[in-house]
Amino acid sequence: MIEVNGISKSFLVSKRPPGLAHAVKSLFRREYTVVEALQNISFTIGSGEIVGYIGPNGAGKSTTIKTMSGILVPDSGTCSIMGYTPWKDRVSYVKNIGVVFGQRSQLWWDVPVLDSFELLRDIYRIPPLEYRSTLALLVETLDLQALLHTPVRQLSLGQRMRCEIAASLLHSPSLLFLDEPTIGLDAVSKIAVRQFIKTINEEKGVTVILTTHDMNDIEALASRLLLIGKGKLLYDGTVQGLRSRYGSKSGAAEASQLQQASASTSEQGHSTGSLSIEDIVVQMYKEYAL
């Protein structure tokens, strides 16, 4: 379904030392540094998969998502999703995808949720019958009935996120990008969101690509993991594979040290003695000096 082949992307970032003199100088001459956001990224994702896409801040996760959703054009490489090249035929491609940016709302702030949904119906040209049945299903599975007539600004973050996800599924996309969908949510909302992602994946066969910093999301949802750091793809495989490859590799002393360090801050069970996925990821970040 998705074939990404050797995608690279670099940005020019203007740099400027602090201070007024430099600020004035930068008006006339700027110095740029080239940041390699993505370097030769390749992977394929099959229909119906849930793939977790992780990496530290600034690793290139969002750039990848933006490239795959057609917002950005890469410098080189090819990408074929459902037969489309995302950054060409943008309009016909984006009909087939849903995108949730966890930190940004796609709903209209001052009007009831239902009004936003209806405008999205018109934007995506969803036939009325299809709209009604999809909406009914989403309202039921996400428990939205009580929220539909509330202005978005009055919703809690958890409620809003449920509405955001519903909004991105109204046009029944076959591919869903979730960029940090559980950021800032409380435990109950997180579990509800995870549960729902699982449901639509199993029942509607929606392929899901999910970026997150919460490893519990990954463990609960994704059978497959892509790990990116400094623009390079470092790991592509199952969660178990990651565990067996990195969990035992480095010395037990370091592992237990890590465990102790994290035991005080995180509440994950270490009673079994095996490393939590969080620890493994931390260890990987260290190993690659990210």
Partner: peptide, 12 residues
């Protein structure tokens, strides 16, 4: 604000 990204993922 980056909201222009949102416009680009809509089919219009």
């Amino acid at each position: 604000s980056g909201d222009f990204d949102r416009l680009l993922v809509r089919p219009r």
